[in-house]
Amino acid sequence: MIEAVMLWNEPNNKSHWDPELDPDWMLFAEMVKGAARAIREVNPTLPRVLGGISPIDPVFIRNMAARGVLEHLEAVAVHGFPLDWNLWQIHEWPGKIAEIRAVTALPVWVSEVGVSSFGAEEVQAWGCGRTAELLKGEAPRIHWYSLYDLPREWEATTRHKEAEGSSYYRHFHMGLLRQDGTPKLALEEFARHTPDLGLCQWFHFEDHRLDAAVDWMRRLGVTHLRTGLSWADSFRPNALDWFDRQMAALQDFSVTLTFCFTPEHRGISPHHTSPPLDPAEYAAFCAEMVRRYAPAG
């Protein structure tokens, strides 16, 4: 069921890691190495993937290599949204992957790629098809972001502010399904490219969409899913009950499980993007989750 584990999410993006607290990523590197070692003690063969980077930056990968991080991993990953936020064109996808291949021998996954329907659903549908054409055969895993629109009542986990308009609100229009579960034009296009295209769908704590999402993924022919278990959520009441329910619901898929988000009370700064006060606690969380959901053998 668990195909791989991913250590953090977008570590070179200040929406997910605070560069003022760790400007050279030294603390991040030590945290990931510790977690990778802890996971290996629990499961000797489970692939470990560096959290998908955004922006796609070979300098960051060189930094991780110089700090010894890549020695503890089996793959690296990239995220790209050229029709929404990136300053490059969709046709440059193969070149962007080549930039990372040039600085590491590890496989390069695309763990998030997507197009919003903010401007028009037709743009999203075209972008889905063109993305599939460009990436199939280029990356061992391609996870389309996402199945559902982000509910408008929720807050986007991003550095963008509401005052920025489109940059912020595009986060709420990335799904193949609208918030109410009705299909967009891109859904049919996506289904033409499964199982080559997998999905990335984050489930919030006690997410009401879980069972419906599983039904949709089966109907669409999805076999590979990337999702996450939040270290911060692990301190909520009944956290393990929710984690168990989520993982049981996803048992028919090959899951890449992302471990991220610092609990506010365990960070250098009280924020989910903060380096932890004690990186061994993150390693312990990762090991516990692997022991529970991906034990050796």
Rank of each mutant, 00 (worst) to 15 (best):
206 E>T: 04
68 G>Q: 11
43 N>F: 10
174 M>T: 06
53 I>W: 03
31 M>H: 07
191 A>H: 02
156 A>E: 00
1 M>K: 14
258 T>I: 14
252 D>W: 00
171 H>N: 09
122 E>G: 01
6 M>A: 15
172 F>Q: 04
108 V>M: 06
266 R>V: 08
251 Q>A: 12
280 A>T: 13
153 E>F: 09
116 S>I: 04
105 A>E: 15
48 R>M: 14
30 E>K: 13
93 W>V: 14
265 H>Q: 15
209 R>M: 02
182 T>H: 13
23 P>T: 05
211 D>S: 03
166 S>H: 08
182 T>D: 06
258 T>G: 13
266 R>T: 06
63 N>W: 00
239 A>Y: 01
43 N>I: 06
109 W>N: 00
24 D>I: 08
199 L>V: 15
211 D>R: 04
28 F>T: 01
238 N>Q: 11
32 V>Y: 00
276 P>A: 15
213 A>C: 05
93 W>F: 15
188 E>T: 02
121 E>D: 07
7 L>Q: 06
125 A>D: 05
154 W>H: 00
195 P>Q: 14
250 L>I: 07
6 M>L: 08
138 E>F: 03
206 E>Q: 11
139 A>L: 09
13 N>Q: 03
40 R>H: 02
44 P>C: 01
38 A>S: 04
283 A>R: 06
141 R>S: 10
242 W>M: 03
37 R>M: 02
175 G>H: 06
